[in-house]
Structure formats: structure tokens, C-alpha cells
């Protein structure tokens, strides 16, 4: 960047900034390599002033590690979202991690049944904070087509908090991408979801309220075993 020697000394630094920026972006011999929308937004100064929280949120939203977590039909469409044609990786969210300890987003792709819910809760608990949940498909919203089943949890929200619901049976890959993009936007804006349903919790067996079913099972379950109690009649 060359500056004219006969330019008078200017004290108004906003003007300096403006001129320098203009010179950089449009002036003769301008170096185009660094010009970008980002540069335009930043102005001449290579420094950004932002709140640390905001910065972290932006980073989180722009580099999401998904948990490789397949449950049911939706996981087939989820695999298609990860692979060729749709390629979720383009949106900075396509690295499936096999271990929950390395992941920050869990996509719940399918019907959750009584036997699986405690395991899913455990997997969710193993993910480091901050963590986000995308519920994929009708089953994670309400139990979907299987809602009336004796063994089906009426939505993932009964077990873990869900940030984004993607409806569909199954949702198309485009819909999942839209859901992930919405999640990224929410993260960048620092929003989080309130828990709307009182979830089923993992509790110690002896902490449960004594009633008929607890008595029946007393000889089968140890007192300190973790259990999940389903009150089907109270389900939404």
C-alpha cells in the first residue's frame, strides 16, 4: 500500500480509516487478494471487536461435530445427508464422530422405545457441554406413526431437551440441512431451548415412590440400580 506524500496530516481518524479502506479496495494497485465481504465488513482495521461470548457462539455454530447416531428409518436419510449429493460437510457440520465425548450435536433419527431411552439419555449425558439436539422425523416429535404403541416414547423431548425439530417421515435430506442451518443460526445468536416437557429421568430404584409396580419389581432390581420410570398415562 503506498500513500501519497503530499497528503496533509489528518486528525480525524474515521476519515483515515475510510480513505485507507477505499484505497485498499478500489485504489490503483490495490491488492485484491484480501478483499472479501468479510474485509468490507471489518473496514481497514484487521481487528474485530466483539463480545467473547458472541465469538464463541459463532465458532460453535460454524464447526459442529455430529454424533454418529443411527436409530431407525431416518438414519438412512441422515446418511444420505452426510454423503455425496447433499454433503452436510459444506455447511460446517458434517463430521460424524463415533464417540459422544467428541461430539457437540446429536441428531436423533428415529423412534425411541422404552428399552432404548435410558441408553440414549446416557449417551446424551456423556456429550460435553455445550451440546445441541436435532430431533429428526415425526417419531422424535410425538412418536409419529407409532404413537399408539405400547413400547414407544411419545417424542424425544420426554427424554432429552430438543433444540430443533425437523418434521417428516422421514424428512428429506434438504429438510435436515435446513434444520441444521437453523440450529447454527440459533447457536450463533446465543439462543437455547427451554425444556417444554418434563423429561423421564434416570433415577436410583430406591428413590422411586413406592407403589404397586415398584413392589412387584423389588426382588428383580437392586436398590442402587439406575432406572427410568415410564408413566404412559401421563404422556402427551
Amino acid at each position: 500500500m503506498s500513500s501519497e506524500r503530499d497528503t496533509p496530516f489528518v486528525t480525524d481518524d474515521t476519515q483515515v480509516q475510510t480513505e485507507t479502506r477505499d484505497a485498499r479496495m478500489t485504489g490503483a494497485g490495490a491488492d485484491n487478494r484480501f478483499n472479501s465481504k468479510l474485509r468490507e465488513a471489518f473496514g481497514s482495521s484487521p481487528f474485530i471487536l466483539t463480545k467473547f461470548d458472541q465469538f464463541m457462539n459463532w465458532v460453535r455454530g460454524s464447526s459442529m461435530f455430529m454424533l454418529q447416531f443411527g436409530i431407525a428409518c431416518c438414519s438412512i436419510e441422515m446418511m444420505h445427508t452426510y454423503s455425496v449429493k447433499h454433503d452436510l460437510d459444506r455447511f460446517a457440520a458434517g463430521v460424524p464422530r463415533a464417540s459422544p465425548r467428541q461430539a457437540d450435536v446429536i441428531i436423533v433419527p428415529g423412534t425411541i422405545v422404552s428399552k432404548f431411552a435410558p441408553r440414549m439419555k446416557r449417551v446424551y449425558d456423556q456429550m460435553p457441554e455445550p451440546k445441541f439436539v436435532v430431533g429428526m422425523g415425526s417419531c422424535t416429535i410425538s412418536g409419529g406413526p407409532f404413537q399408539e404403541g405400547y413400547n414407544v416414547i411419545k417424542g424425544a423431548e420426554e427424554v432429552i431437551p430438543v433444540d430443533i425439530h425437523v418434521p417428516g417421515c422421514p424428512p428429506r435430506p434438504e429438510a435436515l440441512i435446513y434444520g441444521v442451518a437453523k440450529l447454527q443460526q440459533r447457536i450463533a445468536e446465543g439462543e437455547s431451548s427451554p425444556v417444554t416437557v418434563k423429561p423421564y429421568e434416570l433415577e436410583q430404584f430406591d428413590d422411586l415412590e413406592q407403589d404397586e409396580i415398584v413392589e412387584q419389581l423389588a426382588d428383580q432390581i437392586d436398590e442402587d440400580d439406575l432406572v427410568m420410570r415410564y408413566n404412559w398415562a401421563d404422556s402427551p
Binding site: S114, K115, A117, P118, R119, K121, R122, Y150, N151, L202, F205, L208, D211, I213, V214, Q216, L217, Q220, I221, D222, D225, L226, V227, M228, R229, Y230, N231, W232, A233
Partner: peptide
């Protein structure tokens, strides 16, 4: 198919689907 601690046999007649169930994580 169902957890070991399940009470009742769901496809039998007179099965009450609304009764609570407890599932262990052991």
C-alpha cells in the same frame, strides 16, 4: 424384545397399556 423388567404381555388380551413400566440401566 421388551426389557426384562416389563410387566405383562402386550399382545395378550386384557393388557393395560397405560400401566407404568420401569426399565433399568445396569
Amino acid at each position: 424384545l421388551l426389557p426384562d423388567t416389563w410387566q405383562g404381555h402386550p399382545l395378550s388380551q386384557n393388557y393395560d397399556q397405560d400401566r407404568p413400566q420401569i426399565v433399568t440401566l445396569k
